[in-house]
């Protein structure tokens, strides 16, 4: 029973971190109508930033969180318009050209990181690393708790921004119906760039947290892209609320398979679930997909 509780808590904590970037991922799909394959690349870049902040500057790994937002937010802001142009170009299937573009971006990031940093894994270290917290019979690594707290703060901030500001209203309106939003005076092109920047920044922040919990190397990007897809499929593409539920489910599934079956089977289990959901209920288990 203790093991069960421990696993459940671990899964929920990880799921919370996954939720931060999958919410942003869903938002990006809603606004830009692009599935971003590069999501895993942003996560890994954030993790590396966290590592270098510790290794080169000697600071606590979590200091990298705001840094990641600024740095990769700016990079995303530059990429956003390019993506928007391809998505709205006059080729036969702009949707798929945009998909190919993000796929290329992901491959470029992965290859570039492998070339620059090799296959070695790195850790984001913090003063909390190695500490743990006992809650009754359950022992939780403090770093996971901290990561989950940061994740909740980031997600909370995002929701406040989306639901309590005028700009957030514009974003939600665009996600719902871009044509009508444009008629109401929203500059869709600029808004898309901002949303992609916001998403890249948030994803990189989540990457710092992920790097603190697990380690990073350029190859694990694939795993986070998979996570984002899994959540997107379970929740239905573009559904932001569903993403939170689906991300927590993902965290729990992964934790239970790793603990009770073996960690080498966790990816297989995730893929198999993803696959079955795609076959059985392709618009998401909540049937909210676009």
């Amino acid at each position: 029973m203790d093991l069960f509780l421990q696993t459940l808590l671990n899964g929920l904590l990880i799921g919370g971190v996954i939720a931060t970037f999958t919410i942003a991922f869903q938002l990006t799909f809603g606004v830009l109508h692009v599935i971003d394959f590069a999501v895993g690349g942003w996560v890994v870049l954030g993790g590396y930033l966290g590592y270098y902040v510790t290794a080169l500057l000697g600071l606590d790994g979590f200091v990298a969180i705001p840094l990641a937002f600024v740095l990769f937010g700016a990079l995303g802001y530059l990429i956003g318009p390019v993506l928007y142009n391809v998505r709205n170009s006059r080729t036969a299937r702009p949707e798929l050209m945009a998909l190919a573009l993000t796929f290329g971006l992901f491959t470029l990031l992965r290859g570039g990181m492998l070339t620059a940093w090799g296959f070695n894994t790195r850790n984001v270290t913090s003063m909390l690393s190695g500490e743990s917290l006992a809650v009754g019979p359950v022992i939780v690594p403090l770093i996971r708790v901290a990561a989950a707290v940061f994740a909740v703060a980031i997600a909370g901030g995002l929701f406040l921004f989306l639901y309590r500001t005028r700009y957030g209203l514009a974003i939600r309106a665009t996600a719902e119906n871009r044509h009508n939003a444009a008629l109401m005076g929203v500059n869709i092109r600029r808004l898309s760039a901002n949303v992609y920047g916001l998403y890249a920044g948030i994803t990189a922040m989540a990457g710092v947290l992920m790097g603190a919990i697990y380690s990073v190397n350029p190859e694990v990007g694939l795993r986070y892209t998979l996570f984002a897809f899994f959540v997107a499929v379970l929740a239905g593409l573009g559904s932001v609320g569903g993403a939170v539920v689906a991300a927590l489910m993902l965290g729990v599934i992964e934790a239970f398979v790793s603990t009770y079956v073996g960690s080498s089977y966790s990816l297989l289990a995730i893929f198999a679930t993803l696959f079955v959901v795609l076959l059985a209920s392709p618009k998401g288990i909540l049937r909210r997909g676009l």
């Binding site: 290329g104 992965r110 492998l114």
Partner: peptide, 9 residues
Amino acid sequence: IAILGAAIV
């Protein structure tokens, strides 16, 4: 791999 990615982009 990086060349492949850059080529796609």
